[in-house]
């Protein structure tokens, strides 16, 4: 405390000047007002959606722009079973796909990252550069041959085209994220283990992975959220309603009953983002760190 105060007076003498302090105070008030205003603007659409989902159908558009509070959960029951296949099925499909994707990404990406970060082999830098190139690649350019491949394998209308690629480390983002983290783990640890006769598999399993829990959790959460959100993949590969994910189910809702049942549509929209929101609440710090260290897109 005392040191800080001392430093301040030396470096910027004006801090003690009352008018400068007043200016600072005023600035801070203005900044807070701006930020609070922006926050309200940012959150307002989400709050409106939430409020609308709890309103009886006939009040949704008549109650104006202020979210009046009512707690009618009728829309949720109606929306859940509004279509031929209920949302229970969609949720089950989405959860299975997301869960398998998380498992696949964790195994395959951490293996690749371990090779890039720690093992010596010919052409390592070349392959690492190739991996980074795929980060920029638009998925459209592989879309059609992949579709043909999966069709010839008989995988269309199954979740395999959505899940199997995850076991082949195609999400270069996570490989990159993990390489960055693995490089920060002290090399002395694996060298000591090597002295004791541990091979690469043991070092990977017993040293790298246990020390990398934070990055594994980050990768798991992002994988879950991105798979949960994914619309394009399921749109291409899943055509039967009983195989739909939540996102596809929602889209079908818009097409079929959306114009007549806004309450149900909004209620299901809210429910579809609840899993993401829960992860956001629980792991906000990890998500933000993950973005700050790798510059991930979302």
């Amino acid at each position: 405390m005392t040191i800080d105060a001392h430093k301040l007076t030396v470096v910027t003498g004006s801090e003690n000047d009352p008018s400068a302090r007043l200016r600072k105070r005023i600035f801070s008030v203005i900044a807070h007002v701006l930020l609070i205003g922006a926050s309200i603007l940012m959150l307002y659409p989400l709050l409106w959606l939430l409020a609308a989902s709890f309103k009886p159908e006939n009040e949704i558009f008549t109650s104006g722009i202020w979210p009046s509070l009512s707690w009618d959960i009728e829309s949720y029951f109606r929306g859940w079973n509004a279509m031929r296949v209920s949302f229970s099925v969609f949720y089950m499909n989405s959860f299975i796909i997301a869960f398998l994707s998380v498992v696949g990404n964790l195994i395959a990406c951490s293996m690749a990252a371990y090779a890039f970060a720690r093992l010596q082999f010919k052409g390592r830098n070349f392959w690492f550069a190739m991996m980074l190139m795929t980060l920029m690649l638009p998925g459209q350019v592989t879309l059609i041959p992949q579709y043909v491949l999966f069709r010839d394998l008989g995988w269309v209308n199954t979740m395999l085209p959505l899940v199997v690629p995850k076991f082949l480390a195609v999400d270069a983002f996570f490989v990159f994220l993990m390489v960055q983290f693995f490089r920060g783990i002290p090399r002395e640890l694996d060298e000591a283990a090597m002295m004791d006769g541990a091979g690469p598999w043991r070092i990977y399993w017993k040293i790298m992975l246990p020390l990398s829990i934070p990055v594994l959790v980050t990768a798991a959460i992002f994988t879950f959220i991105w798979t949960w959100d994914d619309f394009f993949g399921p749109l291409i590969y899943l055509n039967r309603m009983q195989d739909y994910t939540v996102m596809l189910g929602l889209r079908t809702f818009v097409d079929s009953t959306g114009e007549s049942d806004f309450g149900g549509l909004f209620a299901m929209s809210v429910l579809s983002i609840v899993p993401i929101f829960v992860f956001f609440l629980l792991f906000q710090r990890l998500l933000i760190e993950g973005i700050a260290t790798t510059g991930m897109k979302r």
């Binding site: 090779a115 093992l119 082999f121 879309l143 041959p145 690629p165 082949l168 195609v170 598999w201």
Partner: peptide
């Protein structure tokens, strides 16, 4: 060299089968 390639095996399959091949 082998351990490096073995750890990269899933990635190699994905890279050639699902990325370079399709491109």
């Amino acid at each position: 060299h082998a351990p490096g390639y073995l750890f990269l095996l899933p990635w190699f399959i994905g890279f050639f089968g699902l990325t370079i091949g399709p491109i």
